[in-house]
Amino acid sequence: MSFLSVKNLHVSVDGKEILRGIDLELGEGEVHAVMGPNGSGKSTLSYVLSGREGYDVTDGEVLFRGENLLEMEPHERAAAGVYLAFQYPVEIPGVSNLTFLKTAVNAVRARRGQEDLDAINFLKYAREKGEILEMKDELLKRPVNVGFSGGEKKRNEIFQMAMLEPSLAILDETDSGLDIDALRIVSEGVNKLRTPDRSMIVITHYQRLLDHIVPDFVHVLAKGKFVANGGKELALELEKEGYAKFGIEDEAGSEAA
C-alpha cells in the first residue's frame, strides 16, 4: 500500500476542467516538488487534496494510506494527517492565534484518540514549536494572521504545521512574497520538520525554494497535467531553460518579484 496514491484525477471548477488526469505516487517520508506556471492547476491540486468546497472531482481517485481521501471532510483529513500551508493565509479577526491553535490541536488530538492539552501544557507545547519558526509570543496573542506581515503569515503556516504534526504536508507557494531572510527562516523550519515519516508536496513556481527544501522528486504541471517527472535535477533544468522547454508558456515570465 502506497502512502499517497493519486490516480487519473480530473477536477473541475464551475464546470471548467482544471486538472486533467493527474497521477502521483508518494512514498512515506518523500518530498515531491510540483512546479508549474500560473494557471497550471497547482493550487487546485492543493485544495482538492485538503477538501475545499467548489472543486468537483469528475474522475479518478485519491487514496491516502489506503483510504479514500476524497470522501473525508476537511477536518477529518486534518486529523488523518493532511496539512495544507496556504498560499494566502486567511485573516480571522476576533479569533486569537492561541484560541485557534488550541481548538485545532485539541480537535485533532481528540480524533487521534489523545487527551486534550490543558492551558499550561498547550502553552509549553506552543513555545517549543514556536522556537523552530522563531515565533514571538506576541504573535500568539494576536488575531489569526491579522496585521501579520507576509513573512509572519507564512511562518505562522509552518508553525501550525509543527503544532498539528501532519504526515502529509502540502506547501502551496510557501515561498511567494517572502524576502531572503523570511525564506530562510521558513524553509529552515520546514527542513526541521522533515522526518522519515512525514511526506511533503512542495508546490512552487520557482526553483529558488528548492535550493532550501531539496526535493526527492520533481513534477512539472502544465494545463492540468504532469508533463515531466524526474529527480531534483529537473528543477535546475527548468530554472536554466525555462518552462518553454516543455512547450509551456509562462505568463508570469521569469522571476521578477
Binding site: R52, E73, P74, A78, I92, V144
Partner: peptide, 12 residues
C-alpha cells in the same frame, strides 16, 4: 475563514 479553520482539524 471557515475552510481555513476546518483545514486545521476543527469540525464545521
Amino acid at each position: 475563514a471557515l475552510f481555513y479553520l476546518q483545514s486545521r482539524g476543527i469540525p464545521v
